[in-house]
Design a protein around this nucleic acid. Structure first.
Lengths: 137, 137
DNA sequence: TTTCATGCAAATGATTTGCATAGTC
DNA sequence: GACTATGCAAATCATTTGCATGAAA
């Protein structure tokens, strides 16, 4: 079911601003910060306010249309349609590689057995060094 | 080598404020936010400024005396003497459990093999549900 | 025409910074 | 005495909020 449909079903309105934002996160493929979303929106139409972007992202997160995770000192969003995955972000060049969801299965098992802790591991941002930057240093 | 010694060796001064902050992060065992450090400092002496705390923590991080990691929308610090470990933080009660460093070894191997990515995994904050809160819900 | 959404501007809250003064070595 | 560290207040910067207006159903 599309995000637009979800919005309407729950009694929220499908405004032009929300359409735009939905398009952008859908097309981006990867993840975006609120500021990047705002920039992309404003590249298409002027006059859209940052509050609208933040409020829309909050709503979309509540509806399960996007996922929010932390990257450094800010938050990033990505479309739920892409499914669950993680991000390998290079600390040198900043490039982000999508990483399959199951990579944390051994860790989930281990913390469950050793600490009785049910770890979430949803859309984790993993910092490190990509192959390219590894070669250069 | 103690943090105090490291400070002096690198030409930095061992002021009363820095002594206090070092004591607090040493005694705390776990991790602390800058604000918590400030509160603890001010419980002992009045007149210490938050800038001093932030600047001291920045310095101690550069010297390798403390580690900084992100927890939600803020940063936490802990003493390097405790060695590397991770944090299991319950999303319901907020309790933090220290978790052994090697828990991420399988993931490090996997992302290295599959993505040629060298993951850091230093002082990761793992969100989830602790045994206690799991029972209640 | 009712309710929800937007734009604007101002508030928030953690962290940072400029600068004059005070303290350490 | 030289140079670093501190306190204070003000600046940043991402994010949030109050409120009057505007638009979707």
């Amino acid at each position: 079911m599309s995000c637009a449909t979800t919005l309407k079903e729950k009694g929220f309105k499908l405004t032009p601003q929300r359409r735009l934002i939905l398009d952008i996160i859908h097309d981006s493929g990867g993840h975006l910060t609120a500021e990047e979303i705002l920039d992309n929106v404003q590249a298409k139409v002027t006059g859209v306010n940052k509050s609208t972007v933040y409020r829309t992202m909050e709503l979309l997160e509540e509806l399960g249309c996007v996922f929010k995770s932390e990257l450094g000192d800010r938050f990033i969003y990505h479309h739920a349609e892409e499914g669950h995955h993680h991000h390998l972000v290079c600390r040198t060049c900043g490039k982000s590689i999508d990483c399959e969801e199951d990579i944390f299965l051994p860790v989930k098992r281990a913390v469950n057995e050793n600490y009785s802790f049910r770890a979430d591991f949803k859309h984790v941002v993993i910092s490190g060094l990509c192959a390219n930057c590894r070669g250069k240093s």
